[in-house]
């Protein structure tokens, strides 16, 4: 990691290796710089860290509890362990907890981490008392989105993207408390009746497929979702002069979804309804 002349750096130890990073860099980023893979669900490049999933925790010497690496800035002389028994235990348990309550089939990297940490999400479900799960019907309320709370890990990303990290529409928030907490509109009214403006930025950040483009949901339902065969082409949206970059995901010569690169200085991964869904006319939809 290179620092410009005006930036100061800090030096910390990660698993015995000394790493130098720009002051203000998170432990998570420092781990990345050190080549250490750190699992995370609720962190995203384009959102403020909420550090709720706790799968990225690391052990910092001198700190009583484990520390969320995604949010804590690295400090000079910090000694960090990412592979201690405590860290591995907590990561394993968080993965087990999540897997015991929701369906993680579509969650990117999850299967790999579950394998890596030896998590067994099934051990909570026992015949004398089944483990409680989310158990909500799939909400299909319009032609653009679906919501499937059985996949929701409550990472807050959609709420952040809908709220003050991007869209400032606040159509959804966390409602309820504890295990009963849900991402919800007011009084769980249907999305088309809510403040939702269908920018799709919630979908773009969802790590588990709990909120999804209906185009993808339909193809999955038809067992015809083939991400390995899809091409992704970057272009520029035509609907106004802002210059948002679009990544067109194409399968069998048809656009199946549209995303935007999170590292782009204009969009930071966020789009509006036209950029996200306005492509259908290309395939003659009218």
């Amino acid at each position: 990691m290179t620092a410009t002349e005006t930036e100061t750096t800090v030096s910390l130890t990660i698993d015995g290796r000394t790493v130098e990073v720009v002051a203000g860099t998170t432990i998570h980023k420092a781990c990345e710089a050190a080549g250490t893979d750190t699992p995370t669900l609720c962190w995203a490049e384009n959102l403020t860290p909420v550090n709720v999933c706790r799968v990225c925790v690391v052990e910092v010497e001198g700190s009583r509890a484990l520390v969320p690496s995604c949010a804590r800035p690295a400090e000079d002389a910090m000694v960090v362990h990412t592979d201690s028994e405590r860290v591995r235990h907590s990561r394993r348990m968080v993965l087990e907890f999540l897997g015991s309550g929701v369906d993680l089939d579509q969650a990117k990297d999850l299967a790999r981490w579950i394998e890596e940490y030896g998590a067994d999400p099934t051990r909570y479900d026992q015949p004398d008392l089944p483990a409680v799960t989310i158990n909500e019907p799939v909400r299909i309320q319009d032609d653009l989105y679906i919501r499937d709370y059985d996949r929701c890990v409550l990472c807050y990303k959609c709420v952040e993207a809908c709220g003050d990290d991007a869209q400032h529409t606040f159509a959804i928030a966390v409602a309820g408390r504890g295990f009963g907490a849900r991402i919800s509109t007011e009084y769980d009214i249907e999305l088309p009746d809510s403040a939702c403006v269908y920018c799709g930025n919630c979908i773009a950040v969802c790590p588990t497929g709990a909120i999804q483009f209906k185009s993808e949901f339909d193809l999955r339902a038809a067992a015809d979702w083939r991400p390995d065969e899809q091409t992704v082409t970057r272009t520029v949206c035509s609907y106004c002069g802002v210059g948002c970059n679009l990544d067109l995901h194409v399968q069998d010569g048809r656009i199946v979804k549209v995303t935007s690169p999170v590292d782009h200085p204009i969009t930071h991964g966020h789009l509006c309804i036209k950029g996200r869904f306005g492509w259908r006319y290309v395939h003659g939809g009218r």
Partner: peptide, 18 residues
């Protein structure tokens, strides 16, 4: 309007809930 564009030639191609 937010979900539409000019004479609707392009934006008319999708069903906007809003």
């Amino acid at each position: 309007a937010l979900d539409s564009y000019n004479t609707g030639v392009q934006s008319g191609g999708y069903d906007s809930p809003i």
